[in-house]
Design a protein around this nucleic acid. Structure first.
Lengths: 352, 352
DNA sequence: GTGAAAGCGCTAACAA
DNA sequence: TTGTTAGCGCTTTCAC
């Protein structure tokens, strides 16, 4: 194989413009201490020659790699991809992350990491050593994994923790879980519902309890009963089915159910169908996440959207700022989630 | 910002093992001309120190970047992500590509490129210059874009063209479109169907005609009529709806329809429902691609799976081999597609 | 089979 | 404000 060289290097530009390498470097990096006249001359040469800096070389000498690394849970991501249930978590991450990276001349690289692996540190070390990203984005459940956050802190690599509030370093960013749960509950209350069941998610994710807290808060503020109305699932369809059935066997029966993710909401929908309970005539259902499946359900599910693209976009912005040594906003950052009303919710049934 | 240095470099390993840098380099790259004893000694130092080569440095001096670049159409990809219809094309690419890359110590980087942009070449040049990937994967419609293929050829960058057969350089890889269309048609014929309609896809994609050719071939081999039974859509739901309605208004009516993608098949399903034609009792429907939506349709759609993950995995394998100067298989490579039978197909109705 | 030297493209530190 | 020098970590010559 022929040794592939850079076609146009900083040397060519320097020679062409009749300046030193350093001056070209300063222009590329928009550094101060360059006369406007010089800058223009150099820029002209850059444009004429079509010069593009090599990020490998920049990384070698400088402190920036122009790479942001997004780390997702290996098992869960592969499982979701293989199941082909239309979960678009990764796509939304790319949508938000890639576009924002591109704005700043960065690239986003996607990696999978084993959470439960004893070798997490070694795996992470290897990735950081070979890529040397300027920032790392952690998603649940990595965001709260002390092995990972501790390691990144020790390496002084800027990182964002999506779906996490704790003080484990980095930039915590939450997606409005509690507020949205409260808002959805209040909306159901406004529709006349009094007995509103809640299917919580796995304790492994912090957001499970935030979502529950939103429901609980709204119910208590309205002076409504909550005893026995909250059951815990684990985000799986099966766990949602069991929880929904149990809720629907209560007497008096809840007239609405909020499920902590779409799969469990789908299960609630099926449970209702099996028990001949019409949705939304006799039962309203609200789900969390708003993955594509919500629109294919029958009826389509009212859902709280998870603003993944916006969140990752924000994470990238903050990481780039931090890697440049800029000051950051107050923490944790909260990206609000919206309620998308579809056909699975309606007024409380008259006869209860 | 402090200058971030590599923690453990090849120098540390060399010092630790008491050998030259060169010997360590040879061990890392599994090159010949190293005594087994030496190799073991160096490897022990590498393991003990937890040494990981910096890909930036490797790229700087050597000829490999350990990066494979996947290029997708910008507008179409963003539109799909924003529409949130559960298309998992990108996810399947990542599934196949990332895992295969990881096997070889490579990384896969995902980029979006404007097809219709006049600046394609400039955009591509910039990406190649800054990343210097060892291989590029093109997806439709980039695979047949002469501006892109020509540019990659001139730069001598190994590239794969997915969904393309033509002689535009690189490694063409097709996903069994014609064979699968033939097989699906034969399956319908075996179920007793005689009048089988076909909704073709946009001419912008070569695979549209391959799919049609498979249907046409099977029909002719079986001596069945095809006149008026093939209408062309553009892969959109609306175009599918129009085509399906037209087919269902024919007399005698087709008892089966093959749509060239899932959205058009979904439209056919809806057209049938609107015309009170039961599926599969009075009409069988087969779709192409097998995106997640097929399982959510009512009834779930029988579909020809598009083996994206496998195809990208294969592309990565071949690109890495080519970048190492190895010989390649015969071209074009064909990755077979399977027919997934669900509830939208059945025996031909007795009364026609 | 192994090692020494040169250089990849770029930037930090320093000198002018 | 500009230029010079010395690396960054690694691989490629080319000696031995």
């Amino acid at each position: 194989m022929p040794r592939r060289r850079q076609a146009v290097t900083i040397k060519h530009v320097a020679a062409d413009a009749g300046v030193s390498l350093q001056t070209v470097s300063r222009v590329i990096n928009a550094e101060p201490n360059v006369r406007e006249e010089m800058r223009e001359r150099v820029q002209a040469s850059i444009d004429r020659l079509g010069y593009i800096p090599s990020i490998a070389a920049q990384r070698m000498s400088g402190s920036r790699s122009y790479l942001i690394l997004a780390l997702n849970d290996r098992d869960r991501t592969l499982e979701a991809w293989r199941a082909r249930q239309g979960s678009d978590w990764v796509d939304q991450m790319l949508l938000g992350g890639m576009l924002k990276c591109a704005e700043h001349g960065y690239r986003m690289l996607f990696e999978l990491v084993d959470t439960h692996d004893d070798h997490v540190e070694r795996e992470l070390a290897a990735t950081l050593a070979s890529l040397q990203p300027d920032g790392v984005i952690l998603t649940p459940p990595h965001s709260d994994n002390p092995l990972i956050t501790g390691f990144l802190q020790s390496r002084r690599v800027p990182f964002a923790r999506i779906g996490s509030k704790g003080k484990n370093g980095g930039i915590p960013i939450v997606m409005g879980d509690e507020d949205a749960a409260r808002e959805a509950t209040q909306r159901l209350i406004a529709l006349g519902h009094r007995r509103i069941g809640f299917i919580a998610g796995s304790k492994e994710y912090s957001l499970s309890d935030w979502r529950k807290a939103g429901w609980l808060g709204a119910m208590k503020e309205a002076g409504l009963p909550v005893d026995g109305l909250c059951l815990r699932g684990d985000f799986s369809y099966d766990s949602g089915l069991a929880a929904a059935r149990a809720l629907l066997e209560l007497s008096p029966r809840p007239t609405a159910i909020i499920a902590s993710n779409d799969q469990m909401a789908l299960a609630a929908l099926d449970a209702a169908a099996q028990m001949d309970i019409a949705v939304p005539a006799a039962l309203s259902i609200v789900s969390f996440d708003n993955t594509p499946v919500t629109t294919f359900a029958n009826p389509p599910l009212t859902a709280i959207d998870q603003p993944i693209a916006e969140t990752v976009s924000c994470a990238v912005e903050l990481l780039i700022a931090e890697s440049r040594g800029e000051e950051l906003l107050a923490r944790p950052v909260n990206i609000p989630a919206r309620l998308i009303e579809r056909a699975s919710t309606g007024p409380v049934p008259v006869a209860g």
